[in-house]
Design a protein around this nucleic acid. Sequence first.
DNA 1: CCTGCAATTTGCGATAGCGCAAAACCGGCC
DNA 2: GGCCGGTTTTGCGCTATCGCAAATTGCAGG
Lengths: 236, 236
Amino acid sequence: MAKVDTSLVAHLPLFAGVKPEDLEEILREARSARYPKNTAIFEQGADAQSFFLLLHGHVRAAKTTPTGEQIVVRYVAPGETFGLAMAIGAAHYPATAMAVDDSVVLIWPNSAWPRLVERFPSLTANTLQTVGARLQESHTRILEMSTQQVEQRVAHVLLRLAKQSGKKLDHGIEIDFPISRQDIAQMTGTTLHTVSRILSGWESQGLVESGRQRIILREPHKIVVLAERTADSGPA
Amino acid sequence: MAKVDTSLVAHLPLFAGVKPEDLEEILREARSARYPKNTAIFEQGADAQSFFLLLHGHVRAAKTTPTGEQIVVRYVAPGETFGLAMAIGAAHYPATAMAVDDSVVLIWPNSAWPRLVERFPSLTANTLQTVGARLQESHTRILEMSTQQVEQRVAHVLLRLAKQSGKKLDHGIEIDFPISRQDIAQMTGTTLHTVSRILSGWESQGLVESGRQRIILREPHKIVVLAERTADSGPA
DNA sequence: CCTGCAATTTGCGATAGCGCAAAACCGGCC
DNA sequence: GGCCGGTTTTGCGCTATCGCAAATTGCAGG
């Protein structure tokens, strides 16, 4: 197993308040693994046996209904944890995690969690903070779905993705992993058709440039305006 | 200040793993307060100075947009905590908490939290579990908003409220606190008009009986069927 | 008992967005 | 270099749901 340099992860929120020498002990309990693009890391409903920290790449967490519809819960960026079923007291993974790019993750067996939190209580506290932050994001998303129209929601999602995983270009910001119209639809509660129409419209106005699983925000500022525009406050 | 009997709260999830003699110490740091119906406990955006445990009554947590629209984040039932901004690392309350019935709460100053969690690590762990559970509920709600029509969503919400705070009647289940059509609309992402139409329809079929801020599920089982019905699987 | 207000009901257009279908497109793989 | 499959685009009718307006109801307080 490849050894992970503590300096690469020491600054992560998860390890805030953990002494460097202790960090090594924590990492010793983990193994690392590589998941090629488009492979599943775990499936919704499966026994939760491990929890994960993403080192490189991008992971999509998605939830499926009994009838097969999906929503994207979130995209995991490097440095973030996922699959924390154990910590929050769930026996099964509530979503499916899929690498959308070649990805490298650290994997701890759930059995290590009780021992780790006993020795390093700040792990629980840090996890509580990140789960709390995710809860707030969820509430924001619900608020948006309840009060905004599709175009605004798409604008918000793209801006959020750009902030989280945007690559700065000479002129604009590119979302740094493959993402389809369908994915965006599943993040905004609409259909890929509607997303496609919206992006086409924006493209013809020069706001974005996009192609197959690829989106560049060319005029982020104008998209912010769109995102904040109220339903009725449109142009003359 | 009234003294709170430890036996009343010892069984709550928050205190799982806390020894009865320690519980007394925890409770000593809290004060209790009574909020009459329709009074605010804290306001969205205010400095988070305390966290709360509901003893009696019911509390509505709601989030407001800059433009004034609201959504109901959740209804707090007795025994549940709320206003945990501090624990999840927020400086301000992300929502407004309002007593919808005469309510009694325990209040801890945020300043007590660090000391308490240090002495009783299971408090953090327990809180992480409940926050995690709420996160999952949020995701379920997002999934429903994305994939179901309004009628199904209303059905799900009523069933959830009935399970959480339902009073069993001879024939049916009554939701045990005042709740308006508007409130239900704000939980399902629709308008009070649409909720009213749906409930009227159900009432004429004998599924529910309802009035001013009052709802009784007369045929819970049939409502379950409605909740699970797919958009296209309607009657002939 | 009466009055006033908030909650609820209901009717009636208007429409955002869906759903279906078909075509065009793009990239990777052989 | 050409083929194949997944992705994207776009047209078109449809409808669930909204938004507005007006009538109605029921509770609470005086």
